[in-house]
Design a binder for these strands. Structure first.
Length: 302
DNA sequence: ATGATAGCCTGCCTGC
DNA sequence: TGCAGGCAGGCTATCA
């Protein structure tokens, strides 16, 4: 559910509240929440207890706590996951899946997830290489690589990542025949973009989501990536997009970017660029919103 | 290899 | 009022 800006809001909150603290206790209240931890909930807890959180990092919609054990506590919010701070004395809440306590007796970390598409797992780091275009011969140490949890090695850099290689990403996008929207939602091509920001970026670029990626010009793809970066930074500045209480930051408050959306969820309402009605179409068992006037569909070739 | 689809879950909203 | 059906911001596995 949450896309890059929402995950980044949560990561920042998590960093503020949990960095430099040592884990004392771990409760797994629903085993599905740790299903991606291959050795089970007991091993999950054992690897965390006594570990100190060094800091937090993010790639796309995943973020993780770097531990002083050399491992990562990886978190994905899925569609409905939340990270909340809670007093150690407070009772659990509905949909509480994992609760972590610290040796300073200050606030607990609660992972809450109604639909259990999200989860947490502990993982080793692997090094991902710097893209060749970003190599800096004068600073060999910087070129050594960047570490990500092993299970995330297939996740591409997101448009804010220092490792993001824009020209390589443009080439990869244009090599695909699929609808342009499916390609920018593919986290192994470019990460962080979900259904909302895909539609918003396509609207800003005046592209029909159905267009085969291979038919979009190189400059238009560059514009699309720039627009995705732009809309996501605006959303981040607004504290994220939220339609309901399912997405909140660690304090439980929600962002207000939903009022700035141009197409997403605005079926029938006027396009702010041309005044025509926004349409809603089915795409991969979900919805796609576009302005049929500004985002023209090429006539079907028969 | 790439691309499309089904499945995982729960809660809420709509329409009958 | 009750209930079935549709829908939700994502990812992964599996099939063609």
């Amino acid at each position: 559910m949450p896309e890059l800006p929402e995950v980044e809001v949560v990561r920042r909150g998590a960093d503020t509240w949990f960095a430099n603290r040592r884990i004392r206790s771990v409760q797994v209240l629903h085993s599905r929440a740790t299903r991606r931890h291959l050795h089970g909930p007991h091993d999950f807890s054992a690897r965390l207890i006594n570990a100190r959180i060094v800091g937090t990092e993010r790639r796309g919609k995943y973020f993780w706590f770097r531990l002083d054990t050399g491992e990562a506590l990886v978190t994905h919010l899925g569609m409905s996951g939340q990270l909340r701070v809670a007093s150690p004395a407070s009772p659990g809440t509905n949909h509480l899946r994992v609760r972590i306590g610290f040796d300073d007796d200050r606030d607990d970390l609660m992972f809450i997830d109604q639909r259990t598409f999200g989860g947490m797992f502990v993982d080793d780091f692997v090094e991902v290489p710097y893209p060749s275009a970003k190599r800096d011969p004068g600073r060999a140490s910087r070129n050594a690589g960047f570490e990500v949890p092993a299970a995330l090695s297939h996740i591409a850099a997101d448009p804010f990542d220092p490792l993001f290689d824009q020209s390589a990403t443009v080439r990869r996008i244009r090599a695909k025949q699929s609808p342009i929207k499916a390609v920018i939602l593919d986290q192994s091509v470019v990460s962080g973009i979900g259904n909302i920001y895909a539609d918003e970026s396509l609207w800003r670029t005046q592209l029909d989501w159905q267009r085969s990626a291979a038919t979009v010009s190189r400059s238009k793809v560059i514009e699309l990536i720039d627009n995705a970066r732009e809309v996501m930074s605006e959303a981040l500045a607004a504290g994220g997009t939220s339609f309901d209480s399912l997405y909140v930051n660690v304090n439980g408050s929600s962002g207000y970017f939903s009022r700035s959306l141009a197409v997403y969820g605005r079926e029938g309402q006027p396009c702010e660029r041309c005044g025509g009605p926004i349409s809603r179409e089915h795409f991969a068992n979900r919805s796609s919103f576009r302005c049929p006037r500004c985002q023209r569909r090429a006539p079907a070739t028969v």
